[in-house]
C-alpha cells in the first residue's frame, strides 16, 4: 500500500509541476546524450539547440494562445510561417533595403490569415481543426502559385546576421527575441485584462459569457494575434535559414502543438503558459538532437519520437476518467 501512496504522490507532484518536469526531462535527455556521445558537448551543438528551441518557441507562441481559448488547435501555423518566409525572402532578395517592408507584410498577412481562421471558428462555427486545416491547404497551394514551385532569392544579410549572431560565441541572438517575446506574453497573459479573460474563456465558455465577456470577439482577436505571431515567426525563420523552399516550415504546425501540450496546456483550454511551451520546445529539440547525434536512422527516430510523446502524455496529460 505504501508503494501505491508513493506512486500517487509522485503523480500528483508531476501533474502539479508540469513546466518543471518538462525542463527536467529535457535535461535528462541532454545528459543521456552527453554520456553516450561526449563529443556532442560543444559550443556549436549547444548554440544550435538553443536557436532551434527559440524558433520552435516563437512558432508556439500563437499556438499557446489558441489552445488556451479552448476552441481547439490551429493547424495553419506552419503554412502561414512558410508563406511569410517565402514572400519575404523573395522580396528581400539578398539586399537590405526591403527589411522594413517585409516586417509590415509579414504582420499584415499573418493578421489577415488569422482573421480568416477566426471568422471561420467564431462566425461560421466550424471546428477549428477543420477550418484551419482547409486554410492551411489553400495557403500551401498559394505558396506554389506565387513561386511556381521554386522560391528564389535569399534573406537580407542584415537580418540573417541579426538572428544568427552568437553572443559570447554561445548564445544565438534569436534566443533574445524569444526571451523578449516570452516577457511580453507573460505580461499579456498574466497581468492584463485580455489574458485574464482568455483563461476564464478557456475554463468555461458559458461562465465567461455570463460574466459579460464577448466570447466571439475574444476568440477572433486571439486568432488574429496568433496569425501575427506566426507571420513574425516565419520572417524570423526565413532570416535564420536564409534560404527557403515551399512548405519548409510546415512541420512547425504539429511540432508547436506537441510543444504546447508537453508544456502543460490542455486541449480543452484554460490551462497552459508560455514558459511551458518553451520547456516543451526545449524537450522536443533536445530529443531530436539526441536521436540525430546517435545517428539513428530517420524512420527509427520517428518511431522513438512517437513513443516518447505517448509516454510523456501518459505521465501527465490524461483525460478525466468517465467514472469521476
Amino acid at each position: 500500500m505504501k508503494h501505491k501512496n508513493f506512486a500517487g504522490s509522485l503523480q500528483r507532484f508531476v501533474q502539479g509541476h508540469v513546466v518543471f518536469m518538462a525542463f527536467l526531462m529535457a535535461l535528462a535527455v541532454f545528459c543521456v546524450n552527453i554520456i553516450l556521445n561526449p563529443r556532442s558537448l560543444n559550443r556549436n551543438a549547444f548554440g544550435s539547440i538553443l536557436a532551434l528551441t527559440s524558433l520552435l518557441a516563437l512558432s508556439g507562441a500563437g499556438q499557446t494562445m489558441v489552445v488556451i481559448t479552448g476552441s481547439g488547435i490551429d493547424l495553419s501555423a506552419g503554412s502561414i510561417m512558410s508563406l511569410t518566409a517565402i514572400l519575404s525572402v523573395q522580396l528581400m532578395n539578398g539586399a537590405n533595403q526591403h527589411i522594413g517592408l517585409c516586417i509590415v507584410i509579414s504582420v499584415a498577412l499573418g493578421a489577415l490569415l488569422g482573421l480568416c481562421n477566426g471568422i471561420g471558428v467564431t462566425k461560421i462555427k466550424l471546428p477549428s481543426m477543420i477550418i484551419t486545416y482547409a486554410m492551411s491547404n489553400v495557403i500551401t497551394r498559394l505558396q506554389f502559385i506565387v513561386t511556381e514551385g521554386k522560391p528564389t532569392g535569399s534573406a537580407a544579410p542584415a537580418l540573417s546576421a541579426a538572428l544568427s549572431y552568437r553572443v559570447l560565441g554561445l548564445f544565438p541572438a534569436i534566443l533574445f527575441y524569444c526571451v523578449v517575446l516570452s516577457v511580453l506574453l507573460f505580461v499579456l497573459l498574466r497581468h492584463m485584462k485580455y489574458g485574464k479573460r482568455l483563461y476564464l474563456l478557456g475554463d468555461s465558455h458559458s461562465v465567461a459569457h455570463y460574466t459579460g465577456i464577448a466570447n466571439d470577439r475574444m476568440v477572433l482577436l486571439t486568432y488574429v494575434l496568433a496569425g501575427i505571431l506566426y507571420g513574425v515567426a516565419g520572417l524570423i525563420g526565413a532570416g535564420y535559414f536564409a534560404y527557403v523552399t515551399c512548405g519548409m516550415l510546415d512541420v512547425y504546425t504539429m511540432r508547436s502543438i506537441v510543444a504546447v501540450v508537453i508544456g502543460g496546456a490542455v486541449l480543452t483550454g484554460g490551462k497552459g503558459t508560455y514558459f511551458g511551451t518553451i520547456a516543451g520546445a526545449l524537450f522536443m529539440v533536445v530529443l531530436s538532437n539526441c536521436l540525430a547525434v546517435l545517428s539513428v536512422r530517420d524512420c527509427v527516430q520517428n518511431i522513438i519520437m512517437g513513443l516518447v510523446i505517448i509516454g510523456v502524455l501518459t505521465l501527465y496529460n490524461r483525460d478525466k476518467s468517465v467514472r469521476q
Binding site: 488547435i73 481543426m129 504539429m254 502543438i257 506537441v258 501540450v261 490542455v266 486541449l267 519520437m305 512517437g306 513513443l307 510523446i309 505517448i310 502524455l313 501518459t314 496529460n317 490524461r318 483525460d319
Partner: peptide, 9 residues
C-alpha cells in the same frame, strides 16, 4: 490520452 495527440504520435 487526448485523442488528437495520441493519433498524431
Amino acid at each position: 490520452i487526448p485523442v488528437l495527440l495520441s493519433c498524431y504520435s
